[in-house]
Nucleic acid binder design. Sequence first.
RNA 1: GACUCAAUAGCUCAGCUGGUAGAGCACAUCCCUUUUAAGGAUGGGGUCCAGGGUUCGAGCCCCUGUUGGGUCACCA
Length: 576
Amino acid sequence: MVNLELSEQEIIRRQSLEELRKLGIDPYPAAKYEINASSKEILTKFDPEKNNFQEVTIAGRIMKRRIMGSASFVELQDNGGKIQVYFKRDNICPNEDKTLYNTVFKKLLDIGDIIGVKGNVFITKVGEISVNVAEFTILSKSIRPLPIVKEKDGKIYDAFSDLDQRYRQRHLDLIVNPNVKEVFVKRTKLTNSMREYLNGKGYLEVETPVLQPLYGGAAARPFKTYHNTLDQTLYLRIANELYLKRLIVGGFDGVYEFAKDFRNEGMSRFHNPEFTQMELYVAYKDYNWMMDTVEEMVEKIALDIHGETEVQVGENVINFKRPWKRITMFEAIQEFTGIDISTMDEKELLATANKLKVPVDETMGKGKLIDEIFGEMCESKLIQPTFITDYPIEMSPLAKKHRSVDGLVERFEAICNGKEICNAYSELNDPIDQRERFEEQLVLGKRGDEEAMVLDEDFLRSIEYGMPPTSGLGIGIDRLAMIMTNSNSIQDVLFFPQMRPEKKALKDDNSSYTEIGIPEEWIPIIQKAGYVTVSSLKETSPGGLHQKLCGTNKKHKLGLQNPSQDDVKNWIENIK
RNA sequence: GACUCAAUAGCUCAGCUGGUAGAGCACAUCCCUUUUAAGGAUGGGGUCCAGGGUUCGAGCCCCUGUUGGGUCACCA
């Protein structure tokens, strides 16, 4: 029986599927299909002089079909690109029986099907490198139509651009939008390049717990979960800093981790609830050394991805060539506002913030005020990669006090395209100081700061045994990927960004319909007519419904015995 | 979370002051000899996001909701 929920095109494809089976063709064969070439290889290496690629086997998805009488062209898309494939009736069907071409190829194949073809490479009259098919194999029949995207000279027509659908159905996005794959390939190049750099320095890639009894290492609200056996609340990590430091205490000189972190906060084009951060800790180093490292590493990444240090990001060209500018936070504020705040007390800072129209309130301490002024007046204006150094101590409970300036810590962030891409310190290894800093956070927490850090006794115990002076770094992989791929939103560099659940219309199940006397076979037709719940039928006029049902029966050639008007009337009367 | 814009065929989109639901591609049928966004002809396809309201009449106006985009707030 015809499924009334399917579109016409889906019904036709399901019928084609059955036709194939009737012809003895398995639309989903089990056997492996051995390919010996790819579209990319053929297009780059085919040479008519050499006459190479004369026995190729390739496989891919049909993306376009141009069918003429006894000769046709198909665009086949595989992992690396697309290639034109030429089907000629008498090549495919050398004998009398032309079914394989006339029926299987022309009628039963569709855009979206995955096929394998064997043949030889040649150049068509129009000059396009193509595969001349000798035989083809259906590898997977597609029963849902793809969006059709057309392209000419790099210009895309009817692009599949609905963001909701692109993110919810990333597979579709990847199939029909060629640039999307490229973004994710670059993202992987980025992490490969970074890993290669870190391994080259001899640092050890490690894994630390995602489920943590206490969340620490950053200021953020966590996701909370529960372990039954331990009868214990656990948190998804917001950072892995405190665990990596324990490993430094344990005697590793350099450790790093590509970590999925989770923060239960707002979403935006820069924020996804789960995101990736690379954290690195190296013993016997300080934050100056770490700036050298970040510069060198990110410059290498740009070179590995783009072959040059300049990267186009929106309207800006960003140059990652070393050395990057290094200025203190105070200097940056002076540069953008002309005001030297380095010696101001809290009162003066508040007055300055008000004068600059930076939104602040009385609860903010000195550090927070400085941070607000910087965030408001400077950050978005820093386009080229810049290290901002020496942050107020109040904002950085895990960073070491500045070696020469009171009230500051040895911390830097790299800002690029107006956004922070990394955060690093000379790590605090004085256990007494660390305990005091945690206690200050506790006070903040009691005052209602939901993001204040919690005191981690176990971590404190570990550094009481002695942690070497260490420099630590956290670098946002998604943010860096956005810059390196010229993406405007974090959702464009995550395969499956977090989305609200799709709503589904609630349907009554079949028994609710049969209860009021509706035969099983009429339920889909009634639902198709818009009555997905029995109660929605209550106010319906029986005559109108009867008309509708008989009409659908006729239109879709369902061949059902129409109910009488009295039947329909009885159904509606039976509704409680 | 606040404000704002949007949702119409499988896809991309029109739809006038409120008066019979439209186009291109895709799909189907027929013709066809190497085509390039696509050869020609004909045809089928719609819960106009959902639910209320105003109206003789709603895709369009009003209200509520759903989902998405943008800006802001929190944050990396």
